[in-house]
Design a protein around this nucleic acid. Structure first.
Lengths: 108, 108
DNA sequence: CTTATTCATCGTAATATTGCGATATAGAAG
DNA sequence: CTTCTATATCGCAATATTACGATGAATAAG
């Protein structure tokens, strides 16, 4: 039914899934990659870089912001976006655990 | 329109988004965590661990498998699943790059 | 004040995801 | 061969996501 029983998972599981979900779209991967490549704050030029309308880009940026992956600062008419790295260790820890705890004798 | 213009992104961007997307659901996070915690191959007991029907679990497992995050080996009547770690370095590299290349003077 | 410019939000349409019951498939057990 | 067990797949219904044009809000420019 498209319903996800959020009650049945731990907070950490939900948090991880939420962040990964925000990363689960090529436009948002491209946006993050573009932001991180810039030497200055990124503003409206993302629209010129991606094959999406301004409205769609704004939506993707909002999702990344909601997931805590970017920060936005209003500066005059434009908004400055940059990476918010506070969530990244969570992802790294999870990936590392998956790798670390893998049973070596499994599926030989 | 719900359409994602896959033509407009690099293969690497699409690959990353695809893997992150597979991780973007709490059930699949929980499945991965559970598999990695087991000392032996995981089979049908995932159904008992999660609040989902057997059909739904099977669907999530198929998605994880399609994303290359787990491997399945048929062993008699049951199927043995375990982590496939080959995709994980891609994720780690991406996360690391996002962190590494962040502009320190941004959004001060 | 009027007009641009820049970004966010709303409304809508198309598509994708999620979940489950029912059913199919395949080997194990009798 | 029949039955049980374990997993996969189908079909459907409910919900979520994605995209865009249109519009709104706010500052900048004239």
């Amino acid at each position: 039914m498209g319903i996800t029983k959020t009650d049945s998972y731990t907070d950490q599981t939900l948090a991880l899934a939420s962040i990964f979900k925000a990363l689960g779209h090529p436009a948002r991967i491209a946006i993050l990659a573009y932001i991180s490549k810039q030497t200055a704050c990124i503003c409206g030029d993302i629209v010129a870089e991606l094959p999406l309308s301004q409205a769609s880009i704004s939506r993707h940026l909002a999702e990344l912001k909601e997931a805590g992956l970017i920060k936005g600062t209003i500066s005059g008419t434009s908004v400055c976006y940059c990476i918010d790295e506070t969530q990244l260790p969570l992802l790294e820890t999870f990936i590392h655990q998956i790798k670390q705890l893998q049973n070596q004798t499994c599926c030989a």
